[in-house]
Design a protein around this nucleic acid. Structure first.
Lengths: 195, 195
DNA sequence: AGACGATAAGACACAAACCGTCTCAGTGTC
DNA sequence: GACACTGAGACGGTTTGTGTCTTATCGTCT
């Protein structure tokens, strides 16, 4: 997981993740994390001034960065805008479903975790999605259009991940493509018409 | 797991078990258990005077009873003393390996759990083993001999469960039989000679 | 109806755990 | 030697948990 030589901050964040899975979000203490990361409590407060909240916040940011880094890497060879977007949604859905940490969090602290995926966390998720994916989309779309489509697709991906539908499986490429195509042509041509 | 109509004590013990798995032995509070079992905290203290320790103790006892009840049921058709003992060891090993709760406890609170399987808990385990299995063994052996052989087999079973050996698999009937037969004939005939 | 036992709810005092901040001493680096 | 970083741990304040107790509310039995 985290070798002793690794960056101290990385070690602490890894330990935080492990402790969350083991004790649950409500039950972790800074001391648990200090022991698990082999770092003194004082050091944690020095690294993350503000304590637990800041620490968890930093973990969430790191997870998001990791998530989108992997995602970008998985869709880099796309040949068209439709292809890019469909593959992104599919890959994101698969990543979400394969995320053990997220699964544990959803099971053990549904309230807080859901909030991070819906109410509170969504603006940031969309910010990250844009930061990582807009550069790819802007090969085909202007800045504003790229932002808009990433925004809506992010929301759809989250919704269908949290509450799967009988009629679509966004983790399946053909199903996702069939489902998204109308939306995409609508969104993409609409812009072309109105401009 | 535990239907609302079930005996209140059963509900509380079930909830204790669930909470242990979820939060870990160190992190459970009586309040957690009260909420999980749909019972007020006062009632728990009334049912288990002495609090948390007594409650956990009661859970361990129930688990042991359950374990040996299943075990006895699994070996009831034995045709000889060797058969009975080998099958008991094999069944016990398989039960231990299949026990999810035990696995979680061993992973999350190794110290306390191991102590219950070695230092502190062994006398009781052997007491229970005798209470449940001696009646079966005494079809073939006198009281003292039955106690002695159950004692040593219980210890062997625990040891090989905790630290599996490359040369024997007590969860496998043929392997276990080959391994145990010398012991058993030794123990059983030794008694016959010296008496 | 009235008596009874069991329960939920919650107040209470005490103890323990946790938090966040701080100091200080040790360690390695420039 | 100056410097930055760290571990250890003390601190005051707050929260959380414990175990006991009281009160009100049930359902049950007679």
């Amino acid at each position: 997981m985290s070798v002793p030589e690794a960056n101290a901050e990385t070690r602490v964040l890894d330990a935080t993740k492990r402790c969350c899975e083991r004790f649950g979000l409500e039950k972790v203490t800074v001391d648990d994390i200090a022991v698990a990361s082999g770092v003194s409590r004082a050091t944690i407060y020095r690294m993350f001034p503000g304590g637990k909240d800041v620490l968890f916040e930093a973990l969430r940011v790191r997870e998001l960065e990791e998530f989108f880094a992997i995602l970008r890497q998985r869709v880099e060879g796309a040949t068209s805008i439709e292809d890019l977007l469909v593959r992104t949604v599919v890959a994101a859905t698969q990543e979400l479903r394969a995320d053990d940490h997220l699964a544990v969090m959803l099971a053990s602290a549904p309230g807080e975790t859901l909030s991070q995926l819906t109410v509170d966390g969504v603006p940031r998720i969309i910010r990250f999605a844009n930061a990582f994916l807009a550069p790819l989309a802007e090969a085909y779309l202007d800045h504003e259009r790229a932002r808009a489509v990433i925004d809506v697709l992010a929301r759809l991906t989250i919704s269908y991940f949290l509450a799967p539908s009988d009629t679509v499986d966004l983790g399946d490429e053909t199903s996702a493509r069939a489902f998204l195509d109308p939306f995409l042509t609508a969104i993409l041509t609409e812009g072309a018409i109105s401009s």
